[in-house]
Simulated scan of single mutants.
Amino acid sequence: MPLDVLLLVLFGAALHATWNALVKSGTDKSLDASMVSLGGGLVGLFCLPLVPMPHPEAWPFILMSAVLQFAYFQLVAAAYRTGDIGVVYPLMRGAAPLLVAMTSGFVLGEHLTPAATVGVLVICAGVLTLAFEARHGGRRAILYALANAVVIASYTFVDAAGARVSGNAVSYTLWMSLLPPFLLFGWAVWRRGSTTVWTHVRKNWARGLFGGVGSISSYGLALWAMTKAPVATVAALRESAILFALFISVFILKETASIWRYIAGAVIAAGVLVLKLA
């Protein structure tokens, strides 16, 4: 993998871990996740005049992605209500690239080199090592995390294909970010009332905007990378975010970390090195 692609995906991974930590540390996980989506949508709206329109072939992918993103943010909130970020995040993110790697040949017709396959499997093994710590996460949190892994793998395929036919990965990312906030806030208002939602937005708009910038930037970098390298490779490399999540979990959120989290971090770092040499 080219060094510039690798470094940009790693930077995106750091941004991804950061906005997840914002959701985990917030007082209302569901509305905080919606706020991050709204922040990303506002960034997308502001930047749209700077990019060309996606090709018409991309619009079905954009609509399908919006539905999957709605499910993703709902499951993120549900998982963080019931489990630690140090367990939920790696399970949620670690199973997804494994699913992508197992099915990308069938879905996209992409076949990894033996070295790249080893790198992907090493990263996934590192992330899934944290399953040994699953007893600290709670059964419901684990189920939410694994269900979201399926959603993540699904939108990875949808958005990778959409970005490739759009003609411009940045344009695709910006347009894709606009619809999920409407779905998420429409659902929140219906379930909890406009007063509750508006009060939360007014008090936490900065958190949402900051998280939204991190979310859309992280995903935009990943989609751009998927136009330059195999989807399964980028999807696995992106999950090196667990290294950043581990740091945030221990040093910022003050969550207790067992030896398994540190072993997982070392294995993931080894997988990143293998991908660089592949």
Rank of each mutant, 00 (worst) to 15 (best):
M1T: 11
L3S: 09
V5F: 02
L7R: 01
F11M: 08
G12I: 01
T18Y: 11
T18V: 06
K24C: 05
A33N: 06
G40A: 05
L42S: 08
V43Y: 04
C47I: 10
C47V: 11
L48I: 15
V51E: 06
P54A: 03
H55M: 07
W59C: 06
P60F: 10
I62T: 04
M64P: 02
A66R: 03
A77Y: 08
G83P: 00
G83L: 01
D84L: 15
M92C: 07
R93P: 05
P97R: 12
V100K: 10
F106T: 05
A115H: 07
T117S: 14
V120A: 08
I123G: 09
A125E: 12
G126W: 09
L128C: 06
E133R: 09
G137F: 04
R140I: 07
S154D: 10
D159A: 08
A160P: 04
G167D: 12
N168L: 11
L179W: 02
P181N: 06
F185T: 02
G186I: 12
W187S: 06
R191Y: 05
H200V: 04
N204R: 15
G208A: 10
L209Y: 08
L209K: 08
F210T: 12
S215V: 01
I216N: 03
S217Y: 00
G220N: 06
W224M: 05
W224C: 03
A225D: 09
M226P: 03
K228S: 11
V234P: 01
I242N: 10
L243P: 06
L253Q: 05
K254D: 09
E255H: 08
T256C: 05
T256I: 07
I259H: 07
Y262D: 02
G271V: 08
V272Y: 01
L273F: 10
A278Y: 07
A278M: 02
